[in-house]
Computed example of a mutant assay.
Amino acid sequence: MTSPIRLALIVVALAGLVWPDFAFAHDVARSDRAFVEATHGLAILPFMYLGAKHMVTGYDHILFLLGVVMFLYRMRDVVLYVSMFTIGHSLTLMLGVLFKTGASSYVVDAIIGLSIVYKGAENLGFLRRMGLSIDTRVAVLIFGLCHGLGLATKLLSLSIAPDGLIGNLVSFNVGVELGQIIVLFLVISLLNIWRTSPHFPRTAVVTNWILMGCGTAIMIDQTLGYLAT
């Protein structure tokens, strides 16, 4: 067994030691939950803050975006793929909450784990070797829809007041995109430094194995949680 595979398995094992904080990718902090349930009327800035906080602290989003942009060297490609993810995420978040359409949080979070595994596997060339031809733009859009549905599902579990709901949702979405810009700036800045290293090709392989390990850990835990319900 190669060392990257061993490393990925170690990641899965270590992640199991910090359940449920690691695997429950879209959980809402207790303090944020209390604030949302106590809010009546329009609260633009607080909901923008919550949206930005969700993105900046949402390691599942960060892992997926890292996989997406790792081998994108042109800014227009970064903008294209991130825009596809943003469209999907925003669409299901807004419509899911407005039309009270949710799904099992276990299933959604397992799919989010799958999205991370997918990007790691694609970056490592596994899909190409298997003869699979998948339009990455479409895949990123679909997984963006899943990420948004995951958050919508969590928000639907809260007692959100209808007064100011649309404005607060829009503010939350704006905050998510602002947070995403911050995350992307940091990730791309570090990537640009990392790519100058002669060790980048090898460490990138290891990193993608780690991504697959993290995604697998999320999938396993959420699948077991679903089967236990």
Rank of each mutant, 00 (worst) to 15 (best):
H40C: 01
D109H: 12
V205Y: 09
G215E: 02
S197Y: 14
T39H: 08
L151C: 10
F24E: 10
G67Y: 01
Y226S: 05
F71M: 05
A8L: 05
G215T: 02
G58D: 02
M70G: 06
L80S: 06
K100C: 06
V12Q: 09
M75F: 15
T57A: 04
H40R: 13
N123G: 15
M94K: 02
L227V: 02
H61C: 04
L66C: 12
V97W: 00
A52I: 04
G58Y: 01
F24S: 13
L186A: 14
S105M: 15
P46Q: 05
T86S: 14
E177A: 00
L169E: 06
F64R: 10
W194Q: 13
A34N: 09
G164L: 01
F71R: 12
V11Q: 04
L145C: 02
V97S: 03
V107I: 12
L227T: 03
T86D: 13
S31E: 14
K154T: 08
L155P: 07
L50N: 07
L186K: 06
L98T: 07
L184A: 00
I193A: 15
T86P: 07
I134H: 12
W209A: 04
H199W: 13
G131M: 13
L132F: 15
T203L: 14
G96A: 11
V78P: 13
G131W: 09
G102E: 01
L156Y: 08
L149Q: 05
P201N: 07
I111Y: 06
S115N: 09
T153F: 03
R128W: 06
T57W: 01
S105Y: 03
G144I: 00
G96R: 11
G67T: 00
M1R: 11
A161C: 09
A13N: 09
L17D: 01
T153K: 07
R30M: 13
G175M: 06
F47T: 00
R30L: 12
I210A: 08
C214M: 15
F185L: 12
H61M: 02
A34E: 14
L72V: 04
G67Q: 01
H199I: 15
F22V: 06
T207R: 06
T92Q: 12
V18A: 04
A15N: 00
I210R: 07
S157M: 06
A52W: 04
D135G: 04
L169A: 09
S159G: 12
I160R: 07
L190Q: 14
M48D: 02
L178H: 03
W194T: 12
K154H: 08
L66K: 00
Y81Q: 11
V56W: 05
S171V: 01
Y81V: 07
F35A: 14
L165Q: 10
H54C: 08
S197V: 13
V108M: 11
G167V: 01
A34Y: 11
L114Y: 11
A29Y: 03
N168E: 03
L191K: 12
A204S: 07
A161G: 05
L149R: 09
N173C: 05
Y59C: 01
V140Q: 04
I160E: 00
S157F: 00
G51Q: 06
T153Y: 03
H61T: 05
A29Q: 08
D135I: 12
F35M: 15
A34T: 11
